[in-house]
């Protein structure tokens, strides 16, 4: 294995029902540990995949699919790509009248704030995507997200992080994430910190 030849840990795989990823994760953890990955890296993967699969079932109303690959060299890291074929983040979020006036791009970014959800406030939902960003920031990693023809790149490799709007690779509905997890640091990042990061970006728009 080399840095130019990633090993496919999981080929394109469909999670067809709620929690369907869990039995598969046990096999993935074993394989990653054999490759020398730490338990903290496995923990980050399980948390990330669990939240995104739960989001797909809860908000996109259907299954999701993912691909996982690893690179082992001087630095060890995973690439996780996961997507669903739902109606997309802006459509889902704006079904909550609290967010109905947002532009589609504002809705896309706002969905990553904690306590922002298509569900009513009393359900206390909306943490999953905020968790995703916090895991990436605490890991010094990066995420590309796309929904309904819009794309955004969250880069936490240096400093407090950057957000860049990017054209999506596809204009169809549904949501896709591609994320790198590096086997290095796993720092706790608060919801408040991630919300401030997102608010600062939205204020510049």
């Amino acid at each position: 294995m080399s840095l130019t030849n990633p090993e496919i840990i999981t080929p394109l795989h469909l999670i067809g029902y709620r929690g369907g990823e869990k039995s598969l994760l046990d096999e993935i953890y074993a394989r990653l540990k054999n490759q020398g990955f730490s338990e903290d890296l496995c923990a980050s993967l399980g948390w990330t995949l669990g939240e995104l699969a739960d989001n797909a079932t809860t908000h996109a109303g259907g299954p999701c699919y993912f691909i996982l690959s690893s690179l082992v060299g001087p630095c060890k890291f995973l690439t996780l790509t996961i997507g669903d074929t739902g109606v997309g983040i802006p459509v889902t979020l704006k079904s909550n009248e609290l967010y109905g006036e947002l532009t589609d791009f504002e809705a896309f970014i706002s969905a990553f704030k904690s306590d922002v959800s298509s569900w009513a406030e009393y359900h206390k939902r909306g943490k999953g995507l905020n968790d995703l960003l916090a895991i990436a920031k605490g890991n010094g990693a990066w995420i590309r997200a796309e929904t309904n023809g819009m794309g955004v790149f969250f880069d936490f490799r240096a400093g407090s992080g950057n957000i860049t709007a990017r054209k999506a690779g596809a204009s169809n509905s549904g949501t896709r994430y591609s994320m790198v997890l590096i086997d290095s640091q796993f720092v706790h990042v608060t919801k408040k910190e991630m919300n401030a990061f997102l608010d600062a970006f939205l204020e510049k728009q």
Binding site: D40, W47, I135, K191
Partner: peptide
């Protein structure tokens, strides 16, 4: 609890 589980717990109790 490993470090990442501890992080998840801290996020649950944050507010």
């Amino acid at each position: 609890a490993n470090h990442v589980i501890q992080n998840a717990v801290r996020r649950s109790i944050e507010d």
